[in-house]
């Protein structure tokens, strides 16, 4: 007589899979519930806002923009199918496109590492500090909070302006100022510095990652005679690699998508030396109304970002160390 089958047996009945071989679900929980506790109706009821929103504001627009990229459309009439012409035009004839690509790669390629290196360095230092850590953390995070705003961009323009504070400081030391924003060679660097200045958010993430490293690792290695430098390379860095990976991907995407700094601080000048890609796309769409072409520009950037993200992920196998393998 079996008044009550135990749960394992019941699950085996339901799913036909013996215990021990049952997969864990995506949230890392063992599938303990019997299948008939599924509430599809309820699930989709609560999920519905997201479903509607995603379909309407994300999926459909993405597909629509793909279609648009193969058309010539100026908002006034109807989209005219022109096949790959936009893409051909872009890569063969469009000097601004190429310039904006160069500028954006230069920007992302320098600003993102700058931010990440700063963030990691300061996080490492702050992690060792005991007094007033909270205060430093808050104050150093502040630029990150306000940095993306229009207000700061406007201020930044004046900061590096011909009579701005930077030149004024240089003058006081006896050095001559420079037309930072007027010189095509230096203008982009003011934007790079602006981006690096906002390292606070990445710093917080690194700090959290550092705090997750068990101190027992350091203690054990100290017993074995490890010096701080060795500890850094053998413990800290490897344990931080997942966080570094995460930060790198998110910051790279952000870097490629930058718009406000270029729009407000420099307006792409001088001579397009700060024409960030999204600014160029914005102009095509909202100043020239070449919607089809702008959509094609958007897709090219999307593909580039996807490739970079995939590459970073693929490479992660070689340098990212997870604790649970």
């Amino acid at each position: 007589m079996q008044p009550q089958m135990d749960e394992q047996a019941r699950l085996q009945e339901n799913t036909g899979i013996p215990p021990g071989k049952r997969p864990k679900n995506f949230l890392g929980m063992k599938k303990r519930k019997p299948i008939n506790d599924r509430e599809n109706g309820m699930g989709y009821l609560f999920l519905s806002p997201f479903v509607i929103g995603t379909v309407g504001f994300t999926l459909f627009p993405i597909l629509y923009s793909l279609y648009l990229s193969f058309t010539d459309y100026t908002l006034g009439g109807t989209p005219q199918w022109i096949g790959f012409q936009n893409y051909v035009e872009m890569f063969s004839n469009d000097a601004m496109f190429q310039k904006s690509m160069q500028v954006t790669f230069l920007y992302a390629g320098t600003a993102v590492p700058l931010r990440l290196v700063f963030a990691l360095l300061i996080a490492l230092i702050l992690n060792k500090v005991v007094e007033m850590v909270g205060l430093y953390r808050t104050l150093l995070y502040l630029p990150s909070v306000v940095g993306g705003s229009v207000g700061v961009a406007i201020m930044w323009r004046q900061l590096f302006g011909n009579e701005g504070a930077i030149n004024s400081i240089l003058n006081t030391i006896g050095l001559s100022g420079h037309s930072w924003l007027g010189d095509p060679n230096t203008a982009i660097w003011t934007l790079v510095i602006l981006y690096g200045w906002q390292f606070g958010s990445s710093m917080l993430i690194f700090l959290a990652g550092l705090r997750n490293i068990p101190s027992t690792f350091y203690e054990a290695s100290a017993v074995d005679g490890a010096k701080p430098i060795q500890q850094f390379f053998m413990i800290t860095l490897p344990m931080l690699t997942p966080v570094i990976l995460f930060n790198t991907i998110m910051q790279t995407i952000q870097g490629f998508m930058a718009f406000t700094p270029a729009f407000v601080v420099t307006e792409g000048d001088p001579i397009n030396s700060t024409l960030l890609y999204i600014l160029y796309m914005y102009r095509q769409a909202f100043e020239y109304f070449n919607m089809g072409y702008a959509a094609a520009l958007a897709w090219v950037m999307l593909i580039i970002i996807a490739i970079f993200t995939a590459l970073i992920f693929k490479s992660s196998k070689y340098w990212v160390h997870y604790e649970d393998n």
Binding site: T58, F60, P61, S65, M281, A295
Partner: peptide, 17 residues
């Protein structure tokens, strides 16, 4: 995946809609 998708990507079709 949507979390990683930047707004600028859907900005144009959304505007048209």
């Amino acid at each position: 995946m949507t979390m990683m998708l930047p707004f600028e990507m859907v900005m144009i079709p959304q505007y048209i809609m």
